[in-house]
Design a protein around this nucleic acid. Sequence first.
DNA 1: CCGTTCGGTCAAATCGTTTCGAGCGGAGTG
DNA 2: CACTCCGCTCGAAACGATTTGACCGAACGG
Lengths: 358, 358
Amino acid sequence: MGRTPGSRPTLARVAEHAGVSVSTASLAFSGSGPITGETRDKVLVAAAELGYTGPNPLGRQLRRGRSGIIGVVIGDYPGRAFRDPVAVQVLDGLVDVLGTQGLGVLLIPGVSPSDDGVDPLLETAAMDVAVLVWGVLTDDPILSALQRRNVPVVVGEGRAVDGAPLVALDDRVGMAEAARHLLDLGHTRVAEIALPFGHGERSGPVDAERLTRVDRTPTANRLAGVRDAVDPVLTWETPASLVEHGRDAATEILSTWVPAWERPTAIVAHSDLLAAGAVIAARELGLSVPEDVSIAGFDGIALPWLSPDVLTSVHQPLREKGAALGHAVIGLLAGEEPTTVTLPVGLATGTTTGPAPQ
Amino acid sequence: MGRTPGSRPTLARVAEHAGVSVSTASLAFSGSGPITGETRDKVLVAAAELGYTGPNPLGRQLRRGRSGIIGVVIGDYPGRAFRDPVAVQVLDGLVDVLGTQGLGVLLIPGVSPSDDGVDPLLETAAMDVAVLVWGVLTDDPILSALQRRNVPVVVGEGRAVDGAPLVALDDRVGMAEAARHLLDLGHTRVAEIALPFGHGERSGPVDAERLTRVDRTPTANRLAGVRDAVDPVLTWETPASLVEHGRDAATEILSTWVPAWERPTAIVAHSDLLAAGAVIAARELGLSVPEDVSIAGFDGIALPWLSPDVLTSVHQPLREKGAALGHAVIGLLAGEEPTTVTLPVGLATGTTTGPAPQ
DNA sequence: CCGTTCGGTCAAATCGTTTCGAGCGGAGTG
DNA sequence: CACTCCGCTCGAAACGATTTGACCGAACGG
């Protein structure tokens, strides 16, 4: 390998070694322009001799004005990052679709771990598009930072942002379907375990005033969906969509907070993880599911460890959501007009819901 | 905002507008060189007027010869990507540490989703360092691709690679500790649920020949660790560290595969997810844990849904592992000599192991 | 009052590639 | 045989920044 020590070979050196111009050498690698097979081979041979392994991405990116990198803002609240299987599947679908275009996914923790500003990557990292998987808040600092930098944005499941494609979910309708299912089973005392509201994550019962202060669109939609069908006797807010918070909430709902004779006979949760926590809490309290209490969730994730129970849940197409986000990114890069895609959801009844007791 | 339509302002335009040279303008932003506060302000004002939001990362990267991007190869086998909470926590720690240095994490699915080659990002994406979180196989095509491109590599938990820092785990010792714990409790018929071996993921019992063909170092270490303490009556190989595979394996082990009177009284699993699946399988078979069968795992992840049981498990410092990988990356970029860090593990007994029956 | 030093600014080189338009043979056509 | 056209190659100009070393004036010391 006749490599000059010190620095790696460049296209110019390869061209020189092959006795062609730099532009021709470039053509040999990009493969796009017109070039003789013979010439290309000559270049490739020279490259091999020099240990040149292809064009330097940095040079290419600068010239093209594109980095091939898609920033994905995960973790709208601390800890969400990956712990949530919902996020994981969406990410999976997204990575798959972007991969077909040679686009890479750059992980961006939304909030800075140390101080309170936005993540420095948002300010400095090269990216062609940013994906806000979990929607935007009002006056979202993350969105502001990106807009200031003129980074195009794709939004998942939230309110629409001007000029940005949106991948929405029919979650209000789905949530209503779940609530109506409980109604149809004869349940009248339905409690609700809600996703985070958005301004200072807290946990506890929700009153009318708090209900007006929900800033996170998915949460707002699901609250509305439930109310389209039933009037919950109690809504319990959680700080994150995690099993332990669902368990805590359900423990409160089923044992201490409400007198036993007024105990809700059904719980509708805004997510499967919360619902699963509720199932566990019920089991721990010695209550049978669904004989004593019915529990429904939202998301349709696989919960093998809930076995033998299968959670009644509103299924959403998670990988498809990720794929739709990916296609929105690709469309944006191709200069297409931003559109809104709304994905359907559908209730799948499992073993955790049944007729109301009595 | 007096922005010339068509293209975004550059540092040169800002300098012109401010009446200074380009180099001075650069100094105003980088903040490193000597510069009067007055001059800096002049530049910043000009930038604001032109709507210039800071140096273009692409130009900076080319000049500096660094992208600020760390490629992280996840998913050594399909689906591992994120489904595994172990991976997730490691990633969390890694992202945290790299974030302090302004380094971003680029996600790289190890295996190409469609064809059988390596992921194209491995060949083309700009990255300063690549992290192989789950070790390397012999003749690992991923490693080869990176080495051919001269991308420095950091390896997590596997065999050492020449010139690459290694973050190892004392897993052989830890696994031995878990097995010995079972031995001390009087168990003599111990079965083992193993992580994937590495060449064509399969599931089923492992014979002596298969034992010689394990290519994945963590698996090899844990197999060896178990054998340091006990001689398992049966080892069952799984295609991935997932609850469902643990359940399947344990169902076979506890019911059909072995005659009931020879049923193992303890199961040691190579991961907590597999162990949790085993607990579920035991419950489904009507067996009490730990009265009828003791179950131990490895990893020490939180399993709130296993409640009220707490898994006996060999705890490894997952976030610290991610952090150690991050520090190895930073050291490599600083030109330090690669070192090997071995992280300690320790058995934490829970409620899923107890004295052997009889 | 002159020489030195120092802080601040600037010009120019460089990072490595892609792409545009021109140029140049050779082949095909009238 | 002249002309046109076509296919391939090349030169040169970006892309947008950082950094080195020169330079210049002011301040300071002798």
